[in-house]
Amino acid sequence: MTSGPPEPVRRADWRVSHDEREAVVERLNNAAAEGRIDLEELDVRLSAALNAKTYGDLERLTADLPPEVPVDQEPLVLKGGMHGVTRTGRWDVPGRIIVYGGMGAAKLDFTQTECRLPEIQIEVHGEMAGVTIVIPDGWIAETSRMNPGLGGFRDKTTPDRLPRTPLIRLAGSGGAGGVVIRHANSWERRKLRRLQER
């Protein structure tokens, strides 16, 4: 009798590194300094963080803490204008982005970025030609503040978040052209694989 293929390991069960444990320890210490957790609870959480084995172990320790978002940073403003605008490849991702589709459309592609921010706030305006946002697997989006407008809004992302990846907090309007947020499609995935093989 043959058995079927092995069950895939859930992301929450993946093993964590020393650096990932230390990052959670730092975040817990900051939360205690801000008065969010008391010293007795800090000791318990620090011990659990230092002994954590999986992403799920670490996520439970910070699930009730607000994200750390820089508030003094100027937003990145992108305008599609007449000819369109694309931000792709390796680029520095700020905590706040404002994007306008204009007449030529706008596209934000985060799949090659290395971003350690816990949260990215994106204010999006589809206008006439629309906006497309592409995020890596493991990133998730919170889109409750999106107005679909005439062009509509589509969220094609999955709800599975990897530890130490950003939450995309999206707000704004689809306008006439619409707004789409999704993960990479098959063509974009092939392109990424070719880049990684170089």
Rank of each mutant, 00 (worst) to 15 (best):
D72Q: 12
G95Y: 05
P148N: 08
T2L: 07
S173K: 04
T158V: 05
A63Q: 14
T158C: 00
M103R: 08
G126A: 08
S173T: 15
D13M: 11
R161H: 12
M146P: 04
G4K: 13
G175R: 05
R60T: 13
V134R: 03
M128S: 14
Q121M: 03
L150W: 12
A129S: 15
A12P: 03
V134G: 02
P163H: 10
E59Y: 13
E188Q: 15
R198G: 09
M82W: 11
T143Q: 01
H125C: 00
S17R: 13
E22L: 07
D137Q: 12
V9C: 11
H183A: 05
E26W: 06
E188V: 02
P75L: 03
S144D: 14
M128Q: 15
G104L: 10
L28V: 06
I122N: 01
R116V: 13
W187D: 14
P159F: 09
V9F: 13
G102V: 07
R21W: 08
H18M: 13
R164S: 08
D137L: 13
W14Y: 14
E40M: 10
T158Y: 02
P75S: 01
G95W: 05
L65H: 05
S17C: 09
G130Q: 04
R182G: 02
H18L: 14
C115T: 13
A129L: 04
G95F: 05
D19T: 15
D57Y: 02
L162M: 10
T62W: 01
V24Q: 07
E142T: 02
V71Y: 07
G80K: 13
I140H: 00
G81C: 02
R193M: 11
L58Q: 10
A33R: 15
E119R: 14
L65Q: 04
M82L: 10
D38F: 11
D38Y: 11
P136F: 05
R36L: 15
A106F: 04
P148V: 06
A32K: 09
